[in-house]
Simulated scan of single mutants.
Amino acid sequence: MKTYKEILQHYKKDKVLLAAIDSIPHEIKPALDIDVYRALLNSIVSQQLSVKVVEIIWKRFEDLFVDGYPEAEKLLAIDDTVLRSVGLSRAKTQYLKNVAEFALENEMSFDYLTKKTDDEIIKYLTTIKGVGKWTVQMILMFPMDRLNVFPVDDLGIQQRMVSLYGVDVEKKLLKPALIEIAENWQPYRTLACKYLWKMEL
């Protein structure tokens, strides 16, 4: 497997992206996390919230457990009102419990999932109510460090690509246009997106 530094060399044919990456002072490094179950819970908590708010709610959530780890059985045993008291919405409370139920009844180990393709993992985990494609893509990109994920539905990615490449098309044509641009990054679209998120709008 190529290192991130080696992957950056692959972007040489996209001078716009490479120039933007060069303007970012901090190097992005892999953040592999084999605990996919915990990462999925965290991803649900993170939906539509700022990083700072997520940190506060996640810490309160972890504090509900004696050892700080949200084991599935213990999570399911906690009353919904207690979970909501730490800042979780009614929907997120149910989604977290859906993940816990799934984890008890199905395989979610890193070793099991790593044998599947990206599309297979998306299909597998989106059977959990409350877990959508974007959420699983974040799992693929960060804790699983899959190399070729392109979350075209992500608003941050859309905004930065429109700004960077001067994309000016009808709304219905936006996603196809962005997918075409990202073809130049194949088969390493993940790292390009991680750098896009670091860019100032």
Rank of each mutant, 00 (worst) to 15 (best):
K175P: 12
K74E: 10
L113M: 11
Q186R: 11
Q137V: 11
P143W: 03
Q9T: 14
N148R: 05
V136M: 06
D153S: 15
D33I: 04
F65R: 02
N106L: 10
P187D: 04
E55N: 13
I181Y: 15
M141E: 03
R38Q: 07
L96I: 00
N98S: 06
G68Y: 00
V36K: 03
I24W: 11
E62I: 02
D33S: 15
M108D: 01
P70Y: 11
D33M: 09
Y95C: 04
R90S: 10
L196R: 03
I122F: 04
R60G: 00
R160K: 14
L49S: 07
E107M: 06
Y11A: 04
L75P: 01
L18C: 09
K59N: 06
K92A: 01
L201R: 07
E62R: 10
I122L: 08
A103D: 04
P70N: 14
I21K: 08
C193Q: 03
D111R: 10
K15Y: 14
S46Q: 15
L32R: 15
L49Y: 10
F150P: 01
Y165D: 15
L140A: 03
T3H: 14
A182R: 04
K198N: 10
L140E: 02
V152Q: 01
I7R: 04
E62V: 07
S109R: 09
S23I: 08
G130F: 06
I139D: 00
V169R: 05
Q158L: 03
F61R: 02
L147G: 12
V36W: 01
G68V: 00
L196C: 09
E200C: 04
A91L: 11
T190W: 02
S85E: 09
P25D: 07
V167P: 08
L173H: 08
T114N: 14
K115C: 13
T135Y: 12
L49C: 08
I78V: 06
L76A: 10
E105H: 09
K29T: 07
E105K: 10
K171H: 09
L173A: 11
L196Y: 08
Y124I: 07
L40N: 05
V86M: 01
I24C: 12
A91K: 14
R160A: 00
V152M: 05
L174H: 11
A31T: 14
Q47D: 07
F102K: 08
I181W: 14
A39D: 06
G87S: 05
